[in-house]
Design a protein around this nucleic acid. Structure first.
Lengths: 243, 243
DNA sequence: ATATCTGTTTGATGTATAGCAATCAGCATT
DNA sequence: AATGCTGATTGCTATACATCAAACAGATAT
């Protein structure tokens, strides 16, 4: 919600081994040869934001896109009536706003850090030149925006076809790698934001958690215990028939 | 709903003047020089579908994308429980599935014609080669997918933040160019589909129309009369405060 | 004209969710 | 220990919406 675009530390690129590996594995870079990724990175800077800092506002002209190194970033829109709609939440290894930035359109949503965060900022003027030289970069970007489209398509489906509790348990299940048996999850950010992300209010989220108790879900603070992931998956499914 | 991918007439490209102009004005072609568009078109074919014919199914590998010349096309997903979620509806002048097709991913949704329809089918193998030769085609495609992203972002916001009646009136207002005063609209497709498109049931749509009567909206069959578009816009807005 | 079909409207009812308010729990400040 | 702050939970109530069922209208076929 912070209005002022934070004066964040902006260093010339200097990635540790881990971060470098991460960036190379980002959707749009994964398919590109290492030299090209390095060239692109040489145009970039690293930015650090504090929780609440704004990255950009809806309607601003996009001149760069971002890759998250750490922390959580929220994309949101503010309606005429002043209430906020969360469009997406991104974290380590994800990029966002590539497509709009590359064509210098206006951001369709605003963006802010919801935890302290480190990002790679990829300015687009140079990138556009590089695409003209190496068209495979363009193809890679199309691939990664295709993925974002897919995510949004899923979100639309969820909103239209799934109930609150269903969305909550899908969200929980998406947070763990566990395929069978018990799982422990740390909620990645505040419940307030999770609620927004899932298109419901704080209260409804809380009640959804409560309702999931009978399927072996126990929530205390940010810790979530799932007795049996299969039971949870089945539980939701069953409800659809039981009514 | 038709499962068999219809054996539709597929002619080599032969566009009438009108259609040619239309294709040239499609988002991704608009910024490209005419010769390039013609080259791309030389790889394409025109396909005709009848109402209900399927274009592709969710999960199929994408090998082409489409531009609508006439008719209406519906993108939808079918959930595990078998009910259908409309993701988007496209008509004359719009393209869809570009991004997925270009990277040969699987379609994230299924697609069928909801009226008789004529489409340009743009196969992607050749297009990928052309992008490698002329990278500006890649840039243009990124631009047009950016637009689709924008559309989906708006849809997510609408679903999360707007009530049924609000979405209906926004939909109505989006169908007319009239800025002030009275407007007459012909609903573009069946109410059933409109309801799906707006994320509600047939019945709720009907009741939403009824509720909009007090704002000067009269519906009879496919004809919609709006006494005063401003009144409608204001009316919705007012409700948000009056509760 | 009658029958039939499909799409639409209307009514009755149950449920999910939002909104408001009170309480509570954790955490930091003093 | 007392104070406030913020986030989370819970109860209560109003409402929007889905679902089921019935009536209805326009089109087509018999």
């Amino acid at each position: 919600m912070t209005q002022d675009n934070a004066v964040s530390a902006s260093k010339s690129i200097d990635l540790t081994g881990d971060d470098l590996n991460l960036v190379r594995s980002v959707a749009m870079f994964r398919v590109l040869p290492f030299e090209i990724v390095e060239q692109i990175l040489s145009d970039c800077s690293i930015e650090e934001y504090q929780s609440g800092d704004g990255l950009f506002l809806q309607g601003e002209r996009a001149e760069a896109f971002f890759i998250v190194l750490s922390g959580w970033i929220k994309l949101y829109r503010v309606t005429a009536q002043g209430d906020e709609t969360v469009i997406g939440v991104f974290t380590r290894g994800q990029s966002f706003a590539e497509a709009v930035a590359l064509v210098n359109k206006e951001f369709p949503a605003s963006c802010e850090a919801v935890t302290d965060a480190r990002l790679v900022r990829v300015p687009c003027v140079r990138l556009r030149q590089r695409i003209m030289q190496k068209p495979e970069i363009g193809l890679a970007m199309i691939a990664s925006t295709a993925q974002h489209l897919h995510l949004l398509v899923q979100e639309v489906e969820q909103l239209k076809a799934r109930t609150g509790a269903e969305r909550v348990s899908e969200f929980l299940l998406s947070l763990t790698d566990v395929e069978q048996g018990a799982a422990v999850i740390a909620l990645p950010y505040e419940k307030m934001l999770i609620a927004g992300r899932l298109g419901m209010t704080q209260e409804t989220l809380s009640r959804s958690f409560a309702r999931l108790r009978r399927y072996g879900v126990k929530v205390s603070g940010r810790m979530v215990n799932i007795a049996d992931v299969d039971q949870l998956r089945q539980g939701i499914f069953r409800d659809n028939y039981a009514g």
